[in-house]
Amino acid sequence: MRENVHNGSDYTEGLNQEDELAQALGLLDPAQQDPSYWVRFRSWVVSNAGAELARRRLVRELTVADVMSSWARAVVSTAALVAALAGLLLVRGAGPPALQLVGVEELLVSEVEGETIPTLLAPETNGTVAFAAEIF
């Protein structure tokens, strides 16, 4: 609602005052003194935004296939690395077989794998051992 609007002429005067005030405020528009001001303003902003716009175009150009292929490259190289490490560990782990520890009780109730007494009693074996085996 406008203030002090009592009749038609006041209303028109109020409108004119507002138009004139708006016109006066137009003096603050830089284009009043420099008509090409806004063109230069826009050019400055757009040219300074060039790098960010280029980055956004680049991101957009990365298609799904690009993303998949870059993912696959990463996976393949990681898998190759893991395989190489595993191979290295296997090679390092292939030493002399570990000693089999057998407890005395186990020795008494179960058969020990390995050479049997008949083998020990073979002619080429030491006689002392064969004798001990006979006593046992």
């Binding site: 830089p30 806004w38 826009r42 757009v46 935004a49 716009l53 980055r55 956004r56």
Partner: peptide, 26 residues
């Protein structure tokens, strides 16, 4: 469009709101 790097679209946004931005800044 500007999000995808469209320079023309961004320029249009600037043109559309440059005076208003200046007015608020002023």
């Amino acid at each position: 469009r500007a999000k995808r790097g469209d320079e023309f679209a961004f320029g249009q946004l600037v043109e559309r709101y440059q005076t208003a931005s200046y007015a608020v800044a002023l």
